[in-house]
Amino acid sequence: MSVVFLVLPLALLVVGGAVLAFVWSARSGQFDDLDTPAVRMLHDEGASSRPQGSREKT
């Protein structure tokens, strides 16, 4: 029975910390744009962004 008195407050602290972290990140704008980072790699930005080894031979 004494383990419950130790684990329950510890679990509540962890859950409270997770909720506070989520609220802070939602208010600071972390979840505002979920689509752009996923499709950013699909857009070709030109030869300047290509790695050194991927140049085409002419």
Rank of each mutant, 00 (worst) to 15 (best):
V3D: 15
E56S: 06
V7I: 15
R55T: 06
G46Y: 08
P37F: 04
P9F: 02
D44E: 10
P51E: 08
P51R: 09
S54D: 10
F22Q: 04
V3I: 15
A38G: 06
L42H: 02
D44Y: 13
D32M: 02
P51T: 06
V14H: 02
V19Q: 08
R40C: 01
S2M: 12
Q30M: 11
A11F: 12
L8S: 13
E45S: 08
S25M: 12
M41D: 15
A26F: 10
Q52T: 10
G53P: 02
G46R: 02
V3T: 14
V15Q: 05
P9Q: 03
T58D: 05
L10C: 12
W24H: 05
A11E: 09
L12P: 01
R27G: 03
R50H: 08
R40A: 15
L34F: 04
V39G: 00
L34P: 00
P51L: 10
V39S: 08
M41A: 15
M41P: 04
L13Y: 08
L10W: 08
F31R: 01
L20H: 03
S25F: 05
V19I: 15
S48I: 07
G46L: 03
V15M: 11
V14K: 00
A26Q: 07
L42M: 12
L6Q: 11
L6Y: 09
S28R: 15
V3G: 06
V39K: 02
S2R: 14
G16C: 04
G53Q: 10
L10S: 11
V23Y: 04
D32G: 03
V23D: 07
S48F: 09
F31V: 02
L8R: 14
D33G: 01
R55G: 07
L12N: 08
L34W: 06
G46P: 01
P51H: 08
F5I: 08
K57N: 06
A21Q: 06
P37R: 04
D32N: 13
S48R: 12
S25L: 12
E56C: 07
H43S: 04
G29P: 01
L34Y: 03
Q30K: 10
P51Y: 03
A18H: 02
D44G: 08
V7Q: 11
D35N: 06
M41N: 14
A18Y: 03
G17R: 03
